[in-house]
């Protein structure tokens, strides 16, 4: 469904993404793990068209989208839940959700949007309970749900999430990830999740990539990556000193 080939992205002089190649198949949940500053968000922003790539291809169902505007990319069916949620704090939960459907206003009638709203509320009953509340007054976990719900309002085929676990308590994190996995299983949404929390991401994802200073160091199915000693050392806190060198 999505294919990145030799993607290079610069921030001014700084080479951030170094020859990144990666793919996501339809119906899969793929995770990208990496430490701070590895270039994870840059990669998502390149896919969403927010950051321009210097070279390389981003093929979405065969079409190169690397030069498309963010709006067009959303219309293609790719929608992103940004890092830090970026909600409209003074608006209500429901208005935030309706905003998410703005790419489809005009083309479709209100009924459709109402239907989507209900789907989102069914996925996140907590949002339904708080539909009139201001987004700014929600808890961190609820805000993450709202951000996801808003992204779902444009009926994405590919949903990309930037560190959904950020700043959340462990219990909330697993609730969020369970919902993400449910999206894959019941809505057939393809998912790309960027995470620093490798343990939870690899627990729910099908496959993963490990990124280090702008380069992909490892690729594999989640179970293999969880068992990989290098991943354990670097991302799962199982520190052991190498016995030589």
């Amino acid at each position: 469904m999505l294919r990145l080939q030799n993607l290079n992205t610069y921030y001014g002089e700084i080479h951030v993404l170094k020859n990144i190649s990666l793919h996501i198949q339809e119906g899969e949940m793929v995770t990208l793990i990496g430490a701070n500053g590895a270039g994870k968000s840059t990669m998502l922003n390149s896919i969403s068209g927010i950051v321009g790539a210097k070279s390389g291809a981003i093929l979405y169902n065969g079409t190169d989208i690397s030069n498309m505007s963010p709006d067009r990319i959303v219309q293609q069916g790719i929608s992103q839940v940004p890092e830090g949620r970026q909600l409209f704090a003074p608006l209500s939960v429901e208005d935030n959700l309706r905003l998410g459907a703005y790419t489809r206003y005009g083309k479709e009638n209100k009924k459709e949007i109402q239907k989507d709203l209900e789907t989102v509320y069914a996925l996140f009953p907590r949002l339904k309970e708080r539909e009139r509340q201001y987004a700014g007054t929600l808890s961190g976990g609820e805000q993450q749900m709202l951000a996801m719900g808003r992204a779902l309002m444009c009926r994405p085929k590919l949903l990309i999430l930037d560190e959904p676990s950020m700043g959340l308590a462990p219990l909330i994190i697993s609730e969020i990830f369970k919902t993400i996995a449910r999206l894959r299983d019941t809505q057939k949404t393809t998912l790309f999740v960027v995470e620093q929390n490798a343990r939870v991401a690899l627990k729910y994802a099908d496959r993963g990539y490990v990124m280090e200073t702008g380069k992909i160091m490892l690729e594999g199915n989640s179970r293999d990556l969880l068992e990989n000693k290098e991943v354990q050392r670097a991302y799962l806190g199982k520190q052991k000193k190498p016995i030589w060198e």
Binding site: Q5, S21, L22, H23, K215, I216, L218, E219
Partner: peptide
Amino acid sequence: EDLEQLQLERLQSVINRVYK
């Protein structure tokens, strides 16, 4: 086509790993 994509990905990561 899928195989070649996978080969490219794995090739790049193996080069990164041996270098490191």
